[in-house]
């Protein structure tokens, strides 16, 4: 546990040097990668540790982005708006988890997917508060140079991913993480052994929401402008899953590795196939699922349940 934390801190230290390059491209890429890292680590709480196929990442991200944006519209300073976003995602995930985590398999997956759609429609129709389909502009931070802004958001995302990572390490080595592993292996048996499965699953879901909510708010501040189809994009949910598949859910570093690998692939794809970008992304996903034994294998083994694992 100490070793993992140490490596995490050292890695952050190295990454903290990126803004010194003063290169806008690398800063943008770096900030995106860190955000992906937050999404992947967050999904891992519910998807990897508890074994529940959640597609709710997009819902948390959009909720956080809009909470942060609306809070700033009402005059809350940016930092507090981010905190508010985290809290709203935490609360939402807790309530949602209490309702949805009674579902299993496909039903849980679909219900969690649909939540983002419903939120998007709500945001779309609450025009006065959110600007509806017109989107919402955010105040530009007071830093003078564009460069300083880019570095600032990079460091903000870096701090968040470190926080998420620390939460992951602590959870993995705690009673909560142990209980989640039991649930992932055999939920009924875990229940019989005294694991309060409902509370544990809700805790995992809440953890998978809170950091994504903050990431959404930071993202909103970073790009200055958000609209519902952008931040409630179901692709975020899928990307988070694919990143964890890619890196393997077995270790605390897996999701981070997956995020870095995925972004590299995405960036290569993005530049070469601008028009059919998502199509090639789809191909990538298909190839990953079908043919990448390491990442995918490690996860299938984790998810093999003694019986009825496909239910």
């Amino acid at each position: 546990m100490k070793r993992a934390l140490l490596i995490g801190v050292l890695l952050s230290g190295v990454l903290a040097l990126v803004p010194l390059t003063n290169d806008a491209y690398w800063l943008r890429l770096g900030t995106t990668m860190l955000m992906y890292g937050v999404l992947a680590l967050s999904w891992n709480f519910i998807g990897g540790m508890a074994g529940y196929p959640s597609f709710a990442v997009a819902a948390f991200l959009g909720l956080g982005a809009y909470t942060g944006a609306v809070a700033q519209k009402f005059g809350l300073p940016m930092g507090w708006a981010w905190v508010a976003a985290g809290l709203s995602a935490l609360l939402f995930a807790t309530l949602l988890g209490a309702a949805l985590l009674r579902l299993r398999g496909h039903y849980f997956a679909i219900a969690s997917l649909v939540v983002a759609e419903v939120l998007r429609e709500l945001v779309n129709s609450a025009t006065e508060l959110t600007g509806g389909g017109m989107g919402l502009n955010l105040p530009v931070p007071s830093m003078i140079s564009v460069q300083a802004q880019a570095s600032f958001f990079f460091y903000a995302m870096l701090a968040l991913v470190l926080l998420t990572f620390v939460a992951t390490v602590i959870t993995t080595h705690s009673r909560l993480g142990f209980g989640l592993r039991c649930i992932q292996q055999n939920e009924a048996a875990a229940d019989m052994l005294g694991v309060n499965t409902t509370a544990f699953k809700i805790a995992a879901f809440a953890l998978s929401g809170v950091f994504v909510g903050i990431a959404g708010a930071i993202y909103a501040s970073w790009v200055h402008y958000i609209e519902p189809p952008d931040v409630f994009d179901v692709l975020y949910s899928v990307k988070a899953i694919v990143m964890v598949l890619l890196g393997g859910a077995g270790s605390v570093f897996g999701p981070l590795l997956g995020a870095a690998a995925f972004l590299t692939l995405e960036e290569l794809v993005w530049r070469k196939f601008l028009e059919v970008h998502t199509g090639v992304l789809g191909l990538l996903i298909v190839l990953l699922v079908m043919f990448l034994p390491r990442g995918v294998l490690s996860i299938t083994q984790l998810w093999k349940r003694p019986k009825d694992h496909r239910a």
Partner: peptide, 28 residues
């Protein structure tokens, strides 16, 4: 068929990837 016995999550992700390809192809 190769993924049929895999966990829910993998088949979902697989058909999602296929759909991205088809939908993007139609868009183009």
């Amino acid at each position: 068929n190769r993924m049929i016995a895999a966990p829910v999550l993998l088949t979902l992700t697989l058909t999602f990837g296929l759909d991205l390809m088809l939908a993007n192809g139609m868009l183009a």
